[in-house]
Computed example of a mutant assay.
Amino acid sequence: MTYDNSPRPDIGTAHDPIHSAADLHRRWRLLMEPLGFSEILLWFTFIDADHLQTPALNQLPIPARPDRSISDVLMSRLGEAVAQLPDLSVALLLTRPGYDGVTDDDIGWARILTTDARRHGVILHPIHRANDVELIALTLPSDAAA
């Protein structure tokens, strides 16, 4: 869990393929900076077989504390979507206000989302979290659902 303090990615990279966790991190930075959030949201988008992000960027308001029922319903729906197009994978970003570091709730959300993704056959990219001061990866590529 490290913070990337390099310059903001160039807008010209917005449609580049996402081949690695570093590519995904740069994409989230491009989409979310400048940082600063007024509510807690879970963002999700699809990555296709060509490693391209689909145009839709979705958000779901969530509570601060991890909620297994929200996670289960979301992953069930995402599982239905990826079953129709099996080459899709999912990228998730938790955004919330605050200047603190990674919280137990952040880790809790990452754990239940990863667990439910596996159960529903959803392939996940590393889950990221952004607050008012940093954007970091909460999970590693090895944590992703297979």
Rank of each mutant, 00 (worst) to 15 (best):
M1G: 08
M1S: 12
N5S: 12
S6R: 13
P7Q: 07
R8Y: 07
R8M: 07
P9S: 10
I11T: 09
G12P: 08
P17D: 07
H19V: 07
S20E: 10
A21N: 13
D23Y: 03
L24I: 09
H25A: 15
H25N: 12
R26C: 04
R26I: 02
R27M: 11
L31V: 12
L31M: 15
M32G: 02
E33C: 00
P34S: 00
P34N: 00
L35F: 04
L35W: 05
F37N: 00
E39N: 14
L42K: 11
F44L: 08
T45Y: 01
F46S: 04
F46E: 00
I47C: 01
A49F: 09
D50R: 11
H51C: 08
L52I: 05
P55D: 00
N58E: 15
Q59K: 14
P61K: 08
P61D: 06
I62P: 08
I62C: 07
I62L: 03
P63E: 15
P63H: 10
A64Y: 09
R65G: 11
P66W: 10
D67P: 09
I70N: 02
I70Q: 09
S71E: 05
D72E: 01
L74Q: 06
M75V: 03
S76C: 14
R77A: 14
R77T: 11
G79K: 06
E80N: 13
A81Y: 10
L85S: 15
L88Q: 10
S89Y: 02
V90T: 08
V90K: 09
A91C: 02
A91T: 01
A91F: 03
L92V: 00
L93N: 06
L93G: 02
T95F: 07
R96A: 06
Y99W: 11
Y99H: 14
D100H: 12
G101N: 08
V102P: 03
T103Y: 01
T103A: 05
D104S: 07
D104I: 06
D105F: 06
D105C: 00
D106K: 00
D106W: 02
W109I: 02
A110M: 06
A110P: 03
R111F: 12
L113Y: 05
T115G: 09
T115W: 09
D116F: 05
D116W: 04
R118P: 01
R119T: 09
H120D: 10
H120K: 07
I123M: 12
P126K: 01
P126G: 04
P126S: 07
I127T: 02
I127H: 11
H128W: 12
H128R: 15
R129C: 12
R129F: 07
A130R: 05
N131V: 07
D132T: 00
V133Q: 10
V133L: 14
L135W: 05
I136D: 01
I136E: 09
A137G: 11
T139C: 04
T139W: 08
P141V: 03
D143T: 01
D143R: 00
D143N: 02
A144P: 06
